[in-house]
Computed example of a mutant assay.
Amino acid sequence: MSAEQQLARLERQILGAARVSSFLDTVDLLRRMLAQESPEIRARVLTLVAPSIGRDLAAAVGAAWNIGVLDAEKVIGEGRVKGVPGTPPKTLVAAARASEKAIGAELAKARKLARVGADVATVLAPVFAASNVLQRDVTTLVNHAGNKGTAAVADAVGLSTVWVAETNACVECLAYSGRISKPGKPFPGGLTYGAKSYHPDPVDVPPLHPRCRCELEPLVSREYADALRREADRSVLRGFSLESEPMRVRVEAAERLLARGVDAPKSVIAYARRAVKRGEFGTRGRP
């Protein structure tokens, strides 16, 4: 198979079936999370998950916005909230279009290389790079759109929002978990359990960084936010993390938290002290 033929096949995968699959996987996850309890919500969400989702990144962003709206309405429990736009902000759609344009430019470079007879590895490198960029942008933009939809509902009813991070999130995202933002206001910049924050500017909604899994919820209970803060502290002390985060970062974060003082069970504090002394946690990756 020639380089041009291989390129054509991969391009179809990236901009065709593979892209649709990526979009639908992300949207379907949100749909299933929403539809667990309420047949009414299930019916409403299914109308959003139409075949058009997946044709382009802008369509996926629009679907995620609507699902974020539905999710927030479910938490609030007041039905449809008036004054919430039915479509995401133009800036989000523009970002989706810009991402696709950048990917298209990389694929165009690959086509030119194939036409002049470049070797297969040289031709396909931009294609694989484009695929990685697309996957990153899908997860980031879709998550951003969903959280913006949630924030729009909370703002419309005058509710604060709370940041929710995964238990094994990075040391920066964990520092935001349980933090509260007043209606229409951003979260403060620069929060981290680490030595240095790489995001000093205020953040309107998650994600904090590419591939970030954090979510936003309307604040209906301050006790819930407090529990998230305690869980974030314990996550640092137990060393729960992904392979993408260096062990040294998590160990130093735990050491810093211990030195500062933390309200946590004695067993958790003792475990953290042993891990810090050893320079390694044995619980990496555990939820």
Rank of each mutant, 00 (worst) to 15 (best):
M1D: 07
M1I: 08
M1Y: 10
A3S: 14
R9K: 14
I14C: 09
A17L: 12
A17S: 15
R19M: 15
V20H: 06
D28T: 12
R32V: 08
M33C: 10
Q36H: 11
Q36L: 13
S38F: 03
R42V: 11
R44Y: 02
V45C: 02
L46A: 13
G54V: 06
R55Q: 14
A60F: 03
G68P: 01
L70I: 14
I76C: 02
G77A: 05
G77Q: 02
G77C: 01
E78A: 12
R80N: 11
R80D: 07
V84G: 02
P88I: 02
P89S: 07
T91G: 12
V93R: 07
A96P: 04
R97F: 09
A98E: 14
A98M: 09
I103F: 09
G104S: 01
G104R: 05
G104K: 04
A105Q: 11
A105M: 10
A105P: 10
K112L: 13
R115K: 15
R115Y: 10
G117E: 11
A121N: 11
V123G: 03
V123W: 00
P126A: 00
A129L: 13
V133S: 15
Q135E: 13
T139F: 13
N143Q: 10
A145R: 03
A145W: 04
K148Q: 14
K148F: 06
A151F: 02
V153C: 01
A154V: 02
T161R: 15
W163G: 02
A165T: 10
E166P: 00
C170Q: 04
C170V: 09
C170G: 10
V171M: 10
E172R: 11
Y176T: 03
S177I: 04
S177Q: 01
G178W: 00
R179P: 05
I180T: 08
P183L: 08
P183D: 04
G184K: 07
K185V: 13
K185H: 08
P186D: 02
P186S: 12
P186A: 14
P188C: 05
T192M: 03
T192R: 05
K196P: 03
P200C: 08
P207F: 01
P210E: 08
L216C: 07
Y224C: 03
Y224E: 14
A225D: 08
D226A: 15
R229M: 12
R229C: 06
R230E: 07
R230K: 15
E231G: 10
L237M: 01
L237C: 06
R238W: 10
G239K: 00
G239C: 04
F240W: 15
L242Q: 14
S244G: 11
M247L: 09
V249E: 07
E252L: 12
A254H: 05
R256C: 09
R256H: 10
L258E: 04
L258N: 08
G261C: 03
D263I: 11
D263V: 13
D263R: 14
A264V: 09
P265A: 02
I269G: 01
Y271S: 13
Y271Q: 12
A272G: 02
G279S: 06
R284Y: 09
G285I: 06
R286C: 07
R286F: 13
P287M: 06
